[in-house]
Design a protein around this nucleic acid. Structure first.
Lengths: 157, 157
DNA sequence: GTACTTGCAAATAATTTGCAAATAT
DNA sequence: ATATTTGCAAATTATTTGCAAGTAC
């Protein structure tokens, strides 16, 4: 863990690599899904007994600030975390198993430019999140392995 | 208010148009920014004294389910609400004054299709939010009319 | 008249902070 | 050796729920 991008990222900022932080990084690297702080705690406690929720919150925030982890925004229950998996990470989230796959945001530039021109806004960043079903969850008859449920009960986007 | 899309939307669902709901709808229609439930309460209380926060939460949720209002996701302090302003609403949010402008998501289809093919996911919906500065806030020297502050202190997307 | 709504108060859940003890470097 | 980090407990903040009273239709 010490030599991962996350580990190096922390050191580069003059931060210390404690056993707690290493355990949290390990959890994030091994997870395919987005995780809440409580879930990170649960998994991390395996490697690091006595790990505290406060530390998890603080470490996730450090990793977010150094750009290694990103918040995943969900209609219900916001603020889960997932690591960035490819350059320029945006997230593709599975409704069934919560797996998160990153993808680059190429192809968005035109839309952003056009919108910026039309509105006069200067666009500094963007958040793009696709929601759907991963191959495995499509097969296993939709949402049966599900946890977070649907998005609502009427039309939306 | 009774004849607005929001008002009709509620009636269409067999819901009643109470003074509280009308006041909340008015607040949303008159706001250019995204608002937290507490802010909606504060403004709505002008028209409807005694309006309760519980009612605001419940009404925003009803409007969200009927597709007239959407949650705006922010890195810090998620879960503000803004009305949908154009078809297929996505949001362009001003960091300075929190104004929210909607825009249609045309141009995203290719990216979505390509990503779906590459990953095998079936994509059911997406969340796109652009963040930047509106024309007014660009002039008045960036973030001076600001409230929510920056996004962090290191690189990100 | 009746079913839907409201607002209060209380319950829950999520997140942050103060601080003394522990620890990485 | 020392500044950073931890974890507890407590404080905050956000959101939800039960329920009797009120109200739109």
């Amino acid at each position: 863990m010490r030599d991962t991008a996350m580990g190096k990222g922390l050191r580069a900022r003059g931060l210390r690599l404690t056993s707690q932080r290493l355990a949290i990084i390990k959890v994030l690297l091994e997870a395919d899904e987005h995780l809440t702080p409580a879930e990170v705690l649960e998994r991390g406690a395996g490697d690091c007994p006595g790990l505290g929720l406060t530390t998890v919150y603080r470490t996730l925030e450090l990793l977010r600030k150094s750009g290694h982890v990103q918040r995943v925004h969900l209609e219900e229950g916001c603020h889960a975390y997932a690591r960035l998996q490819e350059k320029e990470g945006h997230h593709l989230v599975c409704q069934g198993c919560h797996r998160v796959v990153g993808f680059p945001c190429t192809g968005l530039a035109d839309l952003v430019d056009e919108t910026a021109q039309r509105t006069g806004f200067s666009v500094e960043s963007h958040l793009l999140e696709l929601v759907g079903l991963c191959p495995a969850c499509q097969e296993s008859d939709s949402i049966e392995c599900n946890a977070a449920g649907g998005t609502g009960d009427l039309p939306s986007v």
